[in-house]
Protein backbone atom coordinates (compact mmCIF):
# COMPACT_ATOMS: atom_id res chain seq x y z
CA UNK A 1 0.00 0.00 0.00
CA UNK A 2 1.24 3.48 -0.90
CA UNK A 3 0.88 5.05 2.56
CA UNK A 4 2.96 8.10 1.59
CA UNK A 5 0.48 8.94 -1.17
CA UNK A 6 -2.53 8.65 1.13
CA UNK A 7 -0.73 10.87 3.64
CA UNK A 8 0.12 13.62 1.14
CA UNK A 9 -3.38 13.68 -0.38
CA UNK A 10 -4.93 13.84 3.10
CA UNK A 11 -2.54 16.55 4.23
CA UNK A 12 -3.00 18.57 1.03
CA UNK A 13 -6.78 18.49 1.40
CA UNK A 14 -6.65 19.40 5.08
CA UNK A 15 -4.33 22.32 4.30
CA UNK A 16 -6.86 23.58 1.79
CA UNK A 17 -9.25 24.03 4.74
CA UNK A 18 -6.88 26.49 6.39
CA UNK A 19 -6.48 28.41 3.16
CA UNK A 20 -10.24 28.82 3.01
CA UNK A 21 -10.86 28.93 6.75
CA UNK A 22 -13.88 31.19 6.64
CA UNK A 23 -15.63 29.25 3.91
CA UNK A 24 -14.78 25.86 5.41
CA UNK A 25 -15.40 26.32 9.12
CA UNK A 26 -16.53 29.80 10.11
CA UNK A 27 -19.39 29.82 7.61
CA UNK A 28 -21.17 26.62 8.83
CA UNK A 29 -20.67 27.65 12.45
CA UNK A 30 -22.15 31.07 11.80
CA UNK A 31 -25.15 29.68 9.91
CA UNK A 32 -25.79 27.14 12.70
CA UNK A 33 -25.65 29.86 15.33
CA UNK A 34 -28.21 31.82 13.28
CA UNK A 35 -30.48 28.74 13.11
CA UNK A 36 -30.28 28.47 16.90
CA UNK A 37 -31.15 32.11 17.35
CA UNK A 38 -34.05 32.06 14.88
CA UNK A 39 -35.49 28.54 15.31
CA UNK A 40 -34.22 27.66 18.75
CA UNK A 41 -34.76 30.91 20.65
CA UNK A 42 -37.12 33.18 18.70
CA UNK A 43 -39.56 30.66 17.21
CA UNK A 44 -38.65 27.69 19.43
CA UNK A 45 -39.72 29.48 22.60
CA UNK A 46 -43.32 29.44 21.24
CA UNK A 47 -43.23 25.75 20.27
CA UNK A 48 -44.03 23.13 22.88
CA UNK A 49 -41.64 20.30 23.74
CA UNK A 50 -41.35 17.51 21.14
CA UNK A 51 -41.42 14.00 22.61
CA UNK A 52 -40.54 15.54 25.97
CA UNK A 53 -37.52 17.41 24.60
CA UNK A 54 -37.51 21.22 24.45
CA UNK A 55 -37.59 22.44 20.83
CA UNK A 56 -34.24 24.24 21.08
CA UNK A 57 -32.59 21.01 22.23
CA UNK A 58 -34.60 18.85 19.81
CA UNK A 59 -33.17 20.55 16.72
CA UNK A 60 -29.49 20.15 17.77
CA UNK A 61 -28.94 16.71 16.11
CA UNK A 62 -30.89 17.83 13.01
CA UNK A 63 -28.84 21.01 12.67
CA UNK A 64 -25.64 19.03 13.04
CA UNK A 65 -26.83 16.64 10.32
CA UNK A 66 -27.77 19.58 8.07
CA UNK A 67 -24.22 20.92 8.25
CA UNK A 68 -22.51 17.52 8.14
CA UNK A 69 -24.34 16.36 5.02
CA UNK A 70 -23.91 19.57 3.06
CA UNK A 71 -20.29 20.06 4.15
CA UNK A 72 -19.30 16.43 3.50
CA UNK A 73 -20.77 16.55 0.01
CA UNK A 74 -19.34 19.96 -0.89
CA UNK A 75 -15.84 19.31 0.55
CA UNK A 76 -15.40 15.91 -1.08
CA UNK A 77 -16.90 16.91 -4.43
CA UNK A 78 -14.76 20.04 -4.69
CA UNK A 79 -11.63 18.14 -3.55
CA UNK A 80 -11.61 15.82 -6.57
CA UNK A 81 -13.40 18.14 -9.03
CA UNK A 82 -10.78 20.88 -8.73
CA UNK A 83 -7.79 18.75 -9.90
CA UNK A 84 -9.97 17.59 -12.79
CA UNK A 85 -10.83 21.20 -13.60
CA UNK A 86 -7.22 22.46 -13.47
CA UNK A 87 -5.81 19.33 -15.15
CA UNK A 88 -3.57 18.39 -12.21
CA UNK A 89 -5.47 15.10 -11.88
CA UNK A 90 -2.99 13.72 -14.46
CA UNK A 91 -0.48 13.40 -11.65
CA UNK A 92 -2.80 11.35 -9.45
CA UNK A 93 -3.80 9.12 -12.35
CA UNK A 94 -0.17 8.47 -13.31
CA UNK A 95 1.02 7.80 -9.74
CA UNK A 96 1.58 4.30 -8.30
CA UNK A 97 -1.59 4.54 -6.27
CA UNK A 98 -4.75 2.42 -6.24
CA UNK A 99 -8.29 3.77 -6.44
CA UNK A 100 -8.79 2.67 -2.85
CA UNK A 101 -5.85 4.78 -1.68
CA UNK A 102 -7.03 7.81 -3.69
CA UNK A 103 -10.48 7.45 -2.14
CA UNK A 104 -9.10 7.06 1.39
CA UNK A 105 -7.02 10.23 0.95
CA UNK A 106 -9.78 12.45 -0.44
CA UNK A 107 -12.78 11.02 1.39
CA UNK A 108 -10.81 10.70 4.64
CA UNK A 109 -9.90 14.40 4.51
CA UNK A 110 -13.44 15.50 3.61
CA UNK A 111 -14.92 13.35 6.40
CA UNK A 112 -12.35 14.69 8.89
CA UNK A 113 -13.31 18.25 8.03
CA UNK A 114 -16.98 17.45 8.51
CA UNK A 115 -16.23 15.80 11.84
CA UNK A 116 -14.38 18.91 12.99
CA UNK A 117 -17.32 21.06 11.89
CA UNK A 118 -19.72 18.69 13.71
CA UNK A 119 -17.76 19.02 16.93
CA UNK A 120 -17.60 22.82 16.58
CA UNK A 121 -21.37 22.97 16.03
CA UNK A 122 -21.90 20.81 19.11
CA UNK A 123 -19.77 23.20 21.15
CA UNK A 124 -21.63 26.18 19.64
CA UNK A 125 -24.96 24.54 20.54
CA UNK A 126 -23.87 24.10 24.14
CA UNK A 127 -23.88 27.91 24.44
CA UNK A 128 -27.59 28.02 23.52
CA UNK A 129 -29.05 24.90 25.18
CA UNK A 130 -28.27 22.45 27.99
CA UNK A 131 -26.91 19.57 25.94
CA UNK A 132 -27.33 15.96 26.93
CA UNK A 133 -26.08 12.90 25.07
CA UNK A 134 -27.58 9.60 26.25
CA UNK A 135 -25.47 7.31 24.04
CA UNK A 136 -22.14 9.04 23.26
CA UNK A 137 -20.62 5.97 21.57
CA UNK A 138 -23.58 5.64 19.20
CA UNK A 139 -23.54 9.38 18.65
CA UNK A 140 -19.90 9.21 17.53
CA UNK A 141 -20.67 6.11 15.42
CA UNK A 142 -23.53 7.85 13.60
CA UNK A 143 -21.40 10.96 13.25
CA UNK A 144 -18.50 9.10 11.61
CA UNK A 145 -20.71 6.90 9.40
CA UNK A 146 -22.60 9.95 8.16
CA UNK A 147 -19.43 11.95 7.46
CA UNK A 148 -17.80 9.07 5.59
CA UNK A 149 -20.83 8.01 3.56
CA UNK A 150 -21.77 11.53 2.49
CA UNK A 151 -18.15 12.37 1.72
CA UNK A 152 -18.23 9.31 -0.55
CA UNK A 153 -21.38 10.70 -2.18
CA UNK A 154 -19.61 14.04 -2.64
CA UNK A 155 -16.62 12.23 -4.14
CA UNK A 156 -18.94 10.54 -6.64
CA UNK A 157 -20.47 13.91 -7.56
CA UNK A 158 -16.98 15.40 -7.99
CA UNK A 159 -15.94 12.55 -10.27
CA UNK A 160 -19.19 12.77 -12.24
CA UNK A 161 -19.37 16.56 -12.63
CA UNK A 162 -17.61 18.00 -15.64
CA UNK A 163 -18.61 21.59 -14.97
CA UNK A 164 -19.35 23.83 -11.99
CA UNK A 165 -23.09 23.75 -12.60
CA UNK A 166 -23.27 19.98 -12.15
CA UNK A 167 -21.10 20.31 -9.07
CA UNK A 168 -23.70 22.61 -7.50
CA UNK A 169 -26.89 21.06 -8.79
CA UNK A 170 -26.98 17.86 -6.70
CA UNK A 171 -26.22 19.51 -3.32
CA UNK A 172 -28.64 22.34 -4.06
CA UNK A 173 -31.54 20.49 -5.65
CA UNK A 174 -31.34 17.09 -3.96
CA UNK A 175 -29.34 17.12 -0.71
CA UNK A 176 -30.73 20.35 0.78
CA UNK A 177 -34.44 19.47 0.16
CA UNK A 178 -33.90 15.94 1.48
CA UNK A 179 -32.27 17.29 4.63
CA UNK A 180 -34.99 19.86 5.26
CA UNK A 181 -37.72 17.28 4.64
CA UNK A 182 -35.95 14.59 6.67
CA UNK A 183 -37.11 15.69 10.10
CA UNK A 184 -34.28 18.13 10.79
CA UNK A 185 -36.55 20.68 12.43
CA UNK A 186 -39.51 18.49 13.36
CA UNK A 187 -40.61 15.02 14.37
CA UNK A 188 -42.23 13.06 11.56
CA UNK A 189 -45.17 12.42 13.88
CA UNK A 190 -45.99 16.14 13.53
CA UNK A 191 -46.83 15.59 9.81
CA UNK A 192 -50.19 14.47 8.34
CA UNK A 193 -50.26 10.62 7.88
CA UNK A 194 -49.76 10.71 4.09
CA UNK A 195 -46.63 12.85 4.42
CA UNK A 196 -45.37 10.58 7.18
CA UNK A 197 -45.48 7.69 4.69
CA UNK A 198 -43.82 9.71 1.91
CA UNK A 199 -41.07 10.83 4.30
CA UNK A 200 -40.17 7.19 4.93
CA UNK A 201 -38.65 7.16 1.41
CA UNK A 202 -36.24 9.92 2.41
CA UNK A 203 -32.96 8.31 3.52
CA UNK A 204 -31.96 11.40 5.49
CA UNK A 205 -34.87 10.74 7.87
CA UNK A 206 -33.13 7.58 9.08
CA UNK A 207 -29.87 9.43 9.69
CA UNK A 208 -31.48 12.26 11.62
CA UNK A 209 -33.68 9.86 13.57
CA UNK A 210 -30.81 7.56 14.57
CA UNK A 211 -28.61 10.49 15.46
CA UNK A 212 -31.35 12.09 17.53
CA UNK A 213 -31.92 8.80 19.35
CA UNK A 214 -28.27 8.77 20.43
CA UNK A 215 -28.86 12.18 22.06
CA UNK A 216 -32.32 11.87 23.63
CA UNK A 217 -33.49 8.28 23.10
CA UNK A 218 -36.35 9.59 20.97
CA UNK A 219 -36.61 8.57 17.31
CA UNK A 220 -39.04 8.53 14.39
CA UNK A 221 -37.89 5.09 13.22
CA UNK A 222 -36.23 2.16 14.94
CA UNK A 223 -32.54 2.84 15.57
CA UNK A 224 -31.57 -0.55 14.10
CA UNK A 225 -33.24 0.41 10.83
CA UNK A 226 -31.43 3.76 10.92
CA UNK A 227 -28.11 1.99 11.28
CA UNK A 228 -28.94 -0.50 8.52
CA UNK A 229 -29.96 2.29 6.12
CA UNK A 230 -26.76 4.26 6.66
CA UNK A 231 -24.63 1.12 6.24
CA UNK A 232 -26.53 0.27 3.05
CA UNK A 233 -25.96 3.83 1.79
CA UNK A 234 -22.25 3.51 2.59
CA UNK A 235 -22.06 0.21 0.69
CA UNK A 236 -23.85 1.63 -2.36
CA UNK A 237 -21.58 4.71 -2.48
CA UNK A 238 -18.47 2.52 -2.08
CA UNK A 239 -19.64 0.26 -4.92
CA UNK A 240 -20.25 3.25 -7.21
CA UNK A 241 -16.78 4.68 -6.48
CA UNK A 242 -15.25 1.25 -7.13
CA UNK A 243 -17.09 1.01 -10.47
CA UNK A 244 -16.08 4.57 -11.45
CA UNK A 245 -12.39 3.84 -10.93
CA UNK A 246 -12.58 0.38 -12.47
CA UNK A 247 -14.09 1.78 -15.66
CA UNK A 248 -12.07 5.02 -15.47
CA UNK A 249 -15.37 6.93 -15.64
CA UNK A 250 -14.59 10.54 -16.67
CA UNK A 251 -11.00 10.03 -15.52
CA UNK A 252 -9.49 7.73 -18.09
CA UNK A 253 -10.22 7.25 -21.77
Amino acid sequence: MNIQAVKVIYKYEMLRTWHTLFQSIASPVLSTALYFIVFGSAIGSRIQAVDGVSYGLFIVPGLMMLSLLTQSVSNASFGIFFPKFTGTVYEIMSAPISFFEITVGYVGAAASKSLIIGVIILITASFFVDLRIEHPVWMVTFLILTCVSFSLLGFIIGLWANDFEKLQVVPLLIITPLVFLGGTFYSVSMLPPIWQNITLFNPVLYLVSGFRWSFFEVSDVNVGISLAVILLFLAICSAIVWWMFKTGYRLKQ
Binding site: Q4, A5, V8, L15, I92, A95, P96
Partner: peptide, 13 residues
Amino acid sequence: DTLRFSRGLFGQK
Protein backbone atom coordinates in the same frame (compact mmCIF):
# COMPACT_ATOMS: atom_id res chain seq x y z
CA ASP B 1 4.78 22.23 -1.26
CA THR B 2 3.76 20.94 -4.67
CA LEU B 3 7.11 19.16 -5.03
CA ARG B 4 6.75 17.48 -1.65
CA PHE B 5 3.23 16.45 -2.66
CA SER B 6 4.44 14.90 -5.92
CA ARG B 7 7.23 12.99 -4.21
CA GLY B 8 4.85 11.54 -1.64
CA LEU B 9 2.26 10.68 -4.28
CA PHE B 10 4.82 8.43 -5.94
CA GLY B 11 5.45 6.65 -2.65
CA GLN B 12 8.79 8.21 -1.77
CA LYS B 13 9.60 9.34 1.74
